[in-house]
Amino acid sequence: MNGNHPVLQYFSPDLFCASIQATAKRDVLRELVAVASAAGGVRGPELLLEMLERRESLGSTGIGKGVAIPHGRSLAVIRMRVVFAIARKGLDFDAVDGKPVKLFFLIVAPPQDKKNEYLPLLGRIAELVQEKKARDRLLKVETYEQLQAVMEDVLGGE
């Protein structure tokens, strides 16, 4: 199912959430972890949630412009994964610009990262959401296939 772009290997249909149910920050993290956990890349979801909450205490991963990228490494993660989720109405995530967040990318990785893929992936996602065109297109996504197509397009021929 995955597309050709190397970044898409960390996405999958079961890591896609077209509409977040949660309305509060803590609940969103819990919901995103539940998606990752159900997809099978995680053991000890509570331990993973705790790590993500600690990361938020360092400073919100809501990087502004309606986007949040909660992330971190944990022994609770078996394989690097990206959960993509949309909060259609937007929600308060203590974002740096104070604006509600609609687009979420949860990026989780195991402690060992032999090929050193985690930080470059985090950087690439953080970079691509800076483009208004990319954000607007991602907000319109309703299916995993659409996400895949948009990501292929905005990531370009890297």
Partner: peptide
């Protein structure tokens, strides 16, 4: 070599002392 990486990406890392305390 990872120091400053997250900040450069645009993430807030203002409260490192909270992690140290935890």
């Amino acid at each position: 070599p990872t120091k400053g990486t997250e900040e450069k990406m645009g993430f807030s890392v203002a409260h490192l002392e909270k992690l140290q305390l935890a």
